[in-house]
Design a protein around this nucleic acid. Sequence first.
DNA 1: GTCTAAATGTTTAGCTCTAAACGTAGCATG
DNA 2: CATGCTACGTTTAGAGCTAAACATTTAGAC
Lengths: 180, 180
Amino acid sequence: MVIVADSYPLDTPSPYPAAEIARAWRRERPGTPTDSIEIVTPLWRLAKLFADDRRRLLADLGVDPATLDLLSVLRRAGAPYELTTRELSRLTLVTAGAISQRVARAEDSGLVTRRNADDGSRAVVVTLTETGHDMIERTVDQVLTRESELVASLSPTGRAELASQLQELLDDVGRRARKP
Amino acid sequence: MVIVADSYPLDTPSPYPAAEIARAWRRERPGTPTDSIEIVTPLWRLAKLFADDRRRLLADLGVDPATLDLLSVLRRAGAPYELTTRELSRLTLVTAGAISQRVARAEDSGLVTRRNADDGSRAVVVTLTETGHDMIERTVDQVLTRESELVASLSPTGRAELASQLQELLDDVGRRARKP
DNA sequence: GTCTAAATGTTTAGCTCTAAACGTAGCATG
DNA sequence: CATGCTACGTTTAGAGCTAAACATTTAGAC
């Protein structure tokens, strides 16, 4: 049995590169399809690095990531900063239950208000309050500036190219992925 | 005020493309650096799609993702399938506390054992049991086969190219990102 | 030897999420 | 009108994670 631990140092500051993981599986279980590993693994790790970094920045600012996500979507929608919970769920990719909880928290903090839609449906409309608007304005520049620094190694063309590849893959995986 | 909701339909089955989000912020807050958005947003969404899809597959198989992650790292390490908790923490990118909980759960289920290292350090060595080994063997092919299907739209060269761009970005972001 | 600093693993408090169970409000059909 | 279907939002149970507080051991410094 080939021992990966023998061929790659275990005390490096970062985890194995994905190529090494794929190689390890091919050795340990020949025949297993490993072609997704070099895409999925770095993708997850990058997402986690960005998420952890953002969470720490936001913790300093006294905001939590879920609330920022909610307020951002409302803010981006433009005046009058309103969306239904259903739209919020779709735009943020979290379940309706989670939206319900997020909105409840934000409402308790006075960042949004909730009211029934008047269009005959049962929809609930969530509106950004002035407090919520202020919070977003205070925060978003810092978050985006920070994240801009994190991707600073990419050249404009390299960034555009990677962005389009990711968006293309996202569209495709979105069609194939199993829904709730 | 430009209203994004006016220029992009709200009832599409998927969320806005990242380019649309970046454009919305440039309109709503000119001057805010938006160059990270087209990288970070699709990255997060892809990571979530893959994570959700895997979680659902694993639920059918009666496994939870955190345990699979733990067992996978041990399995890939090759015989005798042992790593210290510190190494596990680094290889899986989760905190020491989370590893402690994961190992405790897996130990309760008889999937791993725990013992003190005999090399004079205080390290705890985690070892895969036969039950744990069986569980991983039963599961990993299905997971990797499924994920291989999800990235099937990529050509071999396209996949290799994307993989290397991601790995490069990961290495760089790993250096810049804020650590705990 | 004694004391202190560094290294490690564990426990706990607080959050957030998903899935599933609920509770209802529109709506169509007969 | 009843009846049942469908669409939606909310609540709840159970998991898992992070950060921080702990606890304990090892290794030096003197």
